[in-house]
Nucleic acid binder design. Structure first.
Lengths: 206, 206, 206, 206
DNA sequence: GATGAATGAGGCTTCATTCAT
DNA sequence: TATGAATGAAGCCTCATTCAT
């Protein structure tokens, strides 16, 4: 039915609006200090209405995190897969992740705040979920490394160690950029990241 | 007076006991979910007693963070300065930081939780303080890099970029170790970190 | 809208119910000993509900005092203005104030307790407000006296001194009545007050 | 023994010092906001020491009130009794009470605050005591009036009504003076009080 | 006798969630 | 379906009193 489809579309629009505003508020105040009333207010709905979209404040928070994060993982994964050349894949990965951070400053600030784990004891659910999602993503990166090793362009070394190192460098640069919030684009850091990760910092003796 | 000195020693003992237990509880539950009663209970003091040592729950939290973190910074800095050889300094830095993490698992988990910033609006104080302390530490690392460049053992490159990359790799490995908490010592990762950081992951063509 | 008006009416009903019960509790126990839970209980609302009507215990207390007191001032002022004859005005004033005391025994007991000033340091607000309201009222009484002087029915004397004296006598009788709480109506004291105030207690020599 | 007498003298000195400081603090902050620590601090003794002089905060408060108030009652009574002339007795009474207020501003402010009754429910003791003391004092004043009536210098009227009126006027002037705290001496009000009380405010027709 | 650190009951207030309209 | 007033559990903190030194 036409009507049904419209309904669903509207439902999703509202849901997304709530998610966006929630991300903004959570980023600004942190999970505990942000109140459901704040979010209801910001998104223009009544408190009760929020509860028709999300079971609880915690579930809403979980949705904010996992859905947006999932987008980033998906985007990056797609971009990397679309790049045929192995070494270039790494550059694409860095670029894609930095772009996401630049386009989602507020959302990413949540991770700087990082209170995504100080939830009620019972709710290890989100914690587990995020750790698992991250693990899945890292093993994708690990796969990229493994292919590089097999192809002989990367050193013989545990690929997971490579993946973790790369993620660490990326996170470090992104965090610094989010905290400092200077005018310069995060993108200027793509080349340094790739250079250090691939070539290291030691000067080669001749 | 003799008496006074004993008093002060006891005072510090109690204070430390509270700090330790608080670190444990905060690590386990996060700032907001941990209650003052929890901490009082764990440390064996009455609630009111905590308030003779720390003005508020927030100040206690701040003390937990800044004091222990300061120790880590100091320890690492000392170890690095004691090492004369430039390239070895980097290895010592990694080793020292990993050792601290291994010896302070609970405390370091706080950073995995990372809710050290979602405090009451007014209390940007702790936030600023920690960011500054971290910045000071990073610029120490930056200094090490700069010397390496001048000595011709490290590439010509912004030393701050090197420092951030190294910190990122260290954090990444430490976080994974804290989350996974497998039996293996974090120390087995020292060599990989140094190898990747110094030599990169790309296989050198001959 | 009809609905809105009903809502507002209900809101005011609830608010008044809370104010009344709060007056009762505050009068019985004093500001500090009365607990918010007491008042919630007495008024049949949940604790949280009180906070939808009044920001804080202190504001509730302030509302109890200023709103009822305002009513008394207004009532008395109106009654006095409606009386044309100057000397009679004084009798009307005494009658009106005594009537209010009789009809609001519990509320007035608050002033016998009189802890309306021992609030948190910052809250000089209520203190100032009440002193000012009282001052305004006294200057109204002063105005009555001034007219009496101009009309030649009262002695040549600072009218403010007269007003203060009259208020003092009234308060004294009202307080005694509130403390003793005998069966006799406070109204039997109207004539003595007027007699003493107008004629004094000295026997005239001939 | 000499030693014992000195001890007792010292004890009383300390006790008085505490009472004085307590009066100051209670006057400034009110019973509930004043802490035992405040008083200990102000009087230069340790908290524990206060409890060797007074059983509890409440008893200390009671002592502050009843002892000083008793002094005022006694002083005034003495002064009035020393005055032979009946009508002059009234003037002496007003003068004496005003003098006490002027010399004990801080103490008297307690009554302006007036939270001497919002104590724990059980402690009706102080309340009763003060009401009784006041009643005793008023009946002394009543006695003066009665004598005046018998001697034919005061009108035929319930002497208690006269006494209450006089006390009311005195309190009213004293309160206003305490609140306003202008530079002018309270003594300038003696004559007006006496004039109004004895002669009333109505202009005598000839 | 003097001290003051330790105690812990109890107060005010917040805010996620429900449910009658 | 949308609303938002009502709810009440639970948290942080204060402060009178005790008691070991």
């Amino acid at each position: 039915m036409e009507k049904e489809r419209r309904k669903e579309r509207e439902f999703n629009l509202r849901r997304t609006e709530i998610l966006d505003q929630a991300a903004r508020i959570f980023a600004a105040k942190g999970f505990h200090s942000a109140t459901v009333a704040d979010i209801a207010n910001a998104s223009g709905f009544a408190i009760g209405t929020l509860y028709q979209f999300f079971e609880s404040k915690e579930k809403l928070y979980a949705a904010v995190l996992t859905e947006k994060l999932g987008m980033m993982y998906a985007e990056t994964q797609k971009a990397v897969e679309d790049e045929p050349e192995l070494l270039k894949k790494i550059e694409v990965l860095v670029t894609s992740q930095f772009r996401f951070v630049e386009n989602n400053t507020e959302f990413c600030s949540i991770f700087i705040r990082g209170d995504y784990l100080s939830l009620s004891e019972g709710s290890t659910e989100l914690r587990e979920r995020m750790i698992k999602d991250y693990a899945v993503y890292v093993s994708f990166v690990e796969g990229v490394m493994r292919k590089g090793i097999r192809a002989g362009v990367l050193k013989e070394m545990e690929p997971i160690l490579m993946a973790d190192a790369l993620m660490g460098i990326i996170n470090s640069y992104a965090s610094k950029w989010l905290i400092a919030a200077e005018g310069q684009s995060l993108m200027v850091n793509v080349q340094p990241v790739v250079d250090i990760f691939l070539g290291g910092v030691r000067k080669n003796a001749h």
